[in-house]
Computed example of a mutant assay.
Amino acid sequence: MADDLFALAKSAMRRAHAPYSKFPVGAALRTTDGRIFSGCNVEVVSFPEGWCAETTAIGHLVMDGGGRIAEVAVVAEKLPLCTPCGGCRQRIAEFADAGTKVHLCDAEGGVRETVTMGELLPRAFDPQSLA
């Protein structure tokens, strides 16, 4: 993973709006054409209505015209590594392939583990599932 991906994820984490959980998270994704999008979690008092860092980054990707995700970095301030939640795994899978790398980082800059989307979400729900 390139340092720029982690740096943007960490910068996004610092901008998180997490007044209730006190659990800031940042994510950055690189597309197959090299563009990078980042995002942070945004909480609201009605907890289920907030959104995750990965969701914010994907929203930026979509607003910029879309594309395929080549790799993702996720960092949380309070955990040695933070995996995307189930909903975000499905959202990432929508724009990624089973082999897309997901880097689980600590807040100090270390990549604790790199997994693939196929490992995080085996047998993902996909467009063929609707046929």
Rank of each mutant, 00 (worst) to 15 (best):
A9R: 05
K10P: 06
K10D: 06
S11T: 04
S11C: 07
A12K: 02
M13R: 05
M13H: 03
R14K: 12
R15D: 09
R15E: 09
R15C: 04
H17S: 15
H17M: 10
A18G: 11
P19T: 11
P19D: 07
Y20F: 15
S21C: 10
K22V: 08
F23R: 10
G26Y: 00
A28H: 02
A28R: 11
T31A: 11
D33R: 09
G34V: 11
F37S: 06
F37I: 02
G39T: 11
G39L: 05
C40N: 10
V45S: 13
S46Q: 12
S46H: 08
S46D: 12
F47R: 13
G50A: 08
G50K: 10
W51T: 00
W51A: 03
C52V: 00
E54H: 02
A57N: 03
A57K: 11
I58A: 10
V62C: 08
V62L: 13
M63Y: 11
M63Q: 15
G65A: 07
G65S: 01
G67V: 12
R68F: 15
A70E: 15
V72I: 15
A73M: 03
P80E: 09
C82L: 12
C85W: 08
G87A: 13
R91T: 07
I92S: 06
I92E: 01
A93D: 11
A93G: 01
E94K: 10
E94S: 04
E94P: 01
D97T: 15
G99S: 15
T100G: 01
T100F: 06
V102W: 05
H103L: 03
D106G: 09
E108S: 00
E108P: 08
G110F: 00
R112Y: 01
T116Q: 09
G118T: 06
G118A: 09
E119G: 13
F125R: 14
F125H: 14
F125N: 05
F125Q: 09
D126H: 08
D126L: 12
Q128S: 09
Q128P: 06
A131W: 04
